[in-house]
Design a protein around this nucleic acid. Structure first.
Length: 280
RNA sequence: AUUAUUCUUGUA
């Protein structure tokens, strides 16, 4: 069974979702009894295929088969439900798990906090954070990132920055994702100078910017009316091994157009094609 | 310990 579970997990991780799901059918056909690991893997796989209802059916089947869901299975399904936009059902399941005596751990709390943030329910997220702390859990980098991203989505970038400071004070080390979230939020609000400062701080910490972050920054600069700076950054990103893609070019071409710099826009369009990037 | 959690960019 462990072999099957391992294979199932590997297929799921590799994105071979169909095969994985078929493997589950095969396993049952062989008369093997799926355990918590099996169900967890398969619920996660089915959920990531966008079939949440199917995942819920599997969850029920699991319980009917006398297999008690553990903290992993609950957390997985809570995650899948909130990813599918059913934050209320995720919340109900979270409550059910507590009622069943299955203690949520830090991952479970992070999952629900992130789900609430995506649903725009930051008040609930803050309450849950308090509950979590009261139970003695310390916020980790994922907790902070989830909270900050929720705040960013709710246009509460200053609150996110405050949390960033708290994070530093608590000696929780910011990672690449932390910087992405904050830089995205600042760009969103056209606060490009602050975004730029954080970008520098990020690089001092030896994090390498990726294509997406460059695109976010370039779009931020263009939106803030600093197209030339955006263009400069587009030239510099190659030194980080990032090749401008169709999104980068569209962003800068659009920015140039907004400022009436049609000739520059045209030149860039030609350059883009010369560099082998085809317009979409 | 074979399993779960955070960021994913451009547009009319």
């Amino acid at each position: 069974l462990i072999t099957w579970n391992t294979l199932l997990y590997a297929l799921g991780k590799a994105g071979e979702l169909q095969d994985a799901y078929e493997l589950f059918g095969e396993l049952k056909a062989k008369g093997l009894k799926p355990d918590g690991f099996t169900y967890n893997a398969v619920i996660n796989i089915v959920g990531s295929m966008g079939l949440v209802e199917e995942a819920c059916i599997l969850f029920s089947a699991m319980k009917e088969a006398g297999c008690k869901p553990d903290v992993y299975v609950y957390s997985t399904l809570v995650n899948r439900l909130s990813k599918a936009g059913y934050i209320d059902r995720a919340w109900t399941l979270f409550r059910e798990m507590k009622e069943q005596g299955c203690e949520p751990n830090l991952v479970t709390y992070n999952t629900v906090i992130s789900g609430l943030g995506k649903a725009g329910e930051m008040d609930e997220a803050r309450n849950l954070l308090q509950e979590m702390k009261a139970l003695g859990f310390d916020m980790d980098v994922i907790t902070y990132n989830s909270m900050m991203d929720g705040l960013r989505r709710a246009d509460q970038v200053d609150e996110a920055l405050t949390l960033f400071q708290e994070m530093k004070d608590a000696n929780v080390v910011a990672d690449r994702v932390t910087y992405h979230i904050l830089i995205t939020g600042l760009c969103q609000e056209s606060r490009v100078e602050e975004a730029w400062e954080l970008f520098q701080e990020m690089r001092e910490k030896k994090f390498v910017a990726d294509l997406i972050l460059y695109n976010i920054l370039i779009a931020g600069l263009c939106r803030a009316g600093q197209v030339s700076r955006g263009e400069t950054l587009m030239r510099q990103m190659r030194s980080d091994g990032c090749v401008p893609d169709v999104v980068t070019y569209n962003t800068v071409i659009g920015g140039l157009g907004d400022f009436g710099r049609y000739e520059d826009a045209r030149k860039l369009y030609i350059e883009m094609k010369e560099r082998g990037c085809s317009p979409d």
